[in-house]
Amino acid sequence: KYLVLALYDYQEKSPREVTMKKGDILTLLNSTNKDWWKVEVNGRQGFVPAAYVKYL
């Protein structure tokens, strides 16, 4: 498993997404889509914009 760092705040806009705050450390679950990565944060799984996170 990889960890990624939230570069920006992101507010979920659909039930498939998750909210994150700048500085959050997220567990990367799937990065096959170049635009949306599946992550786990605070016990929830969902998608965030790939451009908003970077590998640690």
Rank of each mutant, 00 (worst) to 15 (best):
K1T: 14
K1I: 14
K1M: 14
K1P: 15
Y2H: 15
L3P: 04
L3C: 10
V4G: 10
A6Q: 01
A6N: 01
L7C: 08
L7Q: 05
L7I: 12
L7M: 11
Y8Q: 14
D9R: 02
D9K: 02
D9W: 03
Y10V: 01
E12C: 11
E12N: 07
E12Y: 05
E12F: 06
E12I: 06
K13R: 14
S14M: 08
S14C: 09
P15A: 12
R16W: 15
R16Q: 14
R16F: 14
E17M: 05
V18Q: 03
V18L: 15
T19C: 06
T19M: 04
M20T: 03
M20S: 01
M20D: 00
K22S: 08
K22E: 08
G23L: 02
G23P: 00
G23W: 06
G23V: 01
D24K: 03
D24A: 07
D24L: 04
D24Q: 14
I25V: 13
I25H: 06
I25E: 04
I25W: 05
I25C: 06
L26V: 08
L26D: 00
L26C: 11
L28N: 00
L28G: 01
L28K: 01
L28T: 02
L29Y: 05
L29A: 03
L29C: 07
N30F: 07
N30P: 03
N30K: 07
T32K: 12
T32Y: 11
N33F: 07
K34S: 13
D35L: 14
D35P: 03
D35G: 10
D35Q: 13
D35H: 15
W36E: 04
W36P: 00
W36R: 03
W36A: 02
W37D: 00
W37F: 09
K38A: 10
K38H: 13
K38Q: 14
V39P: 00
E40Q: 09
E40I: 08
E40F: 07
V41D: 04
V41W: 07
N42L: 08
G43M: 05
G43E: 07
G43L: 05
G43S: 07
G43W: 03
G43C: 07
R44V: 09
R44Q: 09
Q45K: 11
G46Q: 01
V48S: 00
V48C: 03
P49K: 04
A50K: 07
A51W: 07
A51N: 13
Y52H: 07
V53Q: 00
V53P: 00
V53G: 01
K54S: 12
K54D: 09
Y55H: 12
L56Y: 14
L56D: 06
L56F: 13
